[in-house]
């Protein structure tokens, strides 16, 4: 019915297991999702251990090594493959001679932190707005509906770039990126939460909780939130790779994290002038970024199928029959 990647539903065979356990079992049975999870786990470990690994290699991300680049050839690293050596495991940066291995690791930190932070902000705002719109009175509902419409119409990348023009230069950039991406791209999440809550509201267990005297807040917390977890996690899994791409895009455009903080997007933008002389400088950050987003996408696909094996494609951005409203604006092109 759907992709082979998204449908190899395992024959569980055993007695039905409930909830999280069953989801976990379905997820584990998918080799692609497992592999993606392993890649991401490794990446997180590498990012966490970046200072340790840097010490092991004996390098740091910001020291210039002028002796390692050929100033006669415009700064191309000496040696093969971008100057790979026992001291510099993945070579050095052309022009400056900074250590590539350590810079790539620190770049992973920026990428993951910004993406996770932004996703968290999107989940929180989306949950808040979506729940309020579904549970509030007519005025609240229509007001929040309009706000969401405006947010979805906001050209995300354009607005995020523009925002960088007005924020004071000394504001910490990673935090700013989290705020910008998080505050601008919660429209889809809010719509999802609202729609899910509206259909949950009609179910008996929610009515029962209300009839026994639970306040709206208590019902939301005790009854609705646990049922919303599945769809919210699924959508967050779609948002994560988008956020990673957004962070690197903004750094690529020169409006992301500031030098000398290493960022894959920024490396790739400087690499545009080096790709003839030093292809390794393009390949390494490109490979890191590609593997990360691919792993997140595959894992997201896996989570989606594991949570809802029947409707594997219902949540994928932009798919599925849409009725009156068009789907939310998608990520960067």
């Amino acid at each position: 019915m759907t992709d082979p990647i998204t449908t190899q539903e395992p024959e569980t065979g055993a007695a039905p297991v409930s909830g999280a356990r069953q989801v976990w079992r379905r997820l584990r049975a998918r080799r692609s999702a497992l592999a993606a999870g392993a890649v991401l786990g490794l990446l997180v470990l590498l990012a966490l251990a970046a200072p340790l690994l840097a010490a092991l290699e004996g390098q740091d991300p910001n020291t210039y090594h002028d002796a390692l680049v050929d100033s006669a050839r415009g700064g191309v690293p000496f040696g093969d493959l971008g100057g790979i050596s026992a001291e510099h495991w993945l070579g050095v940066e052309p022009g400056t001679g900074r250590d590539m291995f350590v810079r790539l690791l620190y770049g992973a930190r920026v990428s993951l932190l910004v993406a996770l932070g932004a996703t968290l902000v999107q989940i929180l705002i989306g949950l808040g707005v979506g729940l309020a719109a579904a549970l509030g009175n007519r005025f609240v509902e229509s007001a929040l509906g309009h706000v969401t419409d405006v947010m979805v119409a906001m050209p995300l990348l354009v607005f995020a770039i523009a925002l960088m023009a007005v924020v004071p230069a000394d504001f910490p950039r990673p935090v700013l990126l989290v705020i910008a991406i998080g505050l601008l791209q919660w429209g889809g999440m809010a719509r999802l939460v609202r729609a899910q809550t509206l259909s949950l509201k009609k179910l008996d267990f929610v009515s029962a909780a209300r009839l026994t005297g639970g306040s709206t807040w208590r019902v939301a917390r005790r009854e609705l939130l646990p049922s919303l977890a599945g769809p919210v996690i699924t959508y967050a899994a779609v948002l994560l790779p988008t956020n990673i791409v957004l962070e690197s895009s903004m750094s690529f455009l020169g409006v992301g994290v500031k030098a000398p903080t290493p960022s894959w997007g920024h490396m790739l933008s400087s690499a545009t002038t080096w790709f003839r002389a030093d292809p390794m400088y393009v390949l390494l950050p490109a490979l890191m970024l590609f593997l990360t987003t691919l792993a997140f996408t595959v894992l997201g696909d896996g989570v989606r199928t594991a949570l809802d094996p029947r409707a594997a494609s219902r949540l994928s951005v932009g798919t599925k029959r849409r009725t009156a409203r068009t789907s939310s604006a998608r990520g960067a092109a």
Binding site: F290, F296, A332
Partner: peptide, 24 residues
């Protein structure tokens, strides 16, 4: 199977990576 993996890879690639690849 091949197409599925190709399209999956395509959706995960930012445009500056595909652009740099084509340029190179």
């Amino acid at each position: 199977r091949v197409l599925t993996w190709l399209t999956l890879a395509g959706t995960a690639t930012p445009v500056f990576i595909s652009g740099l690849g084509l340029l190179m």
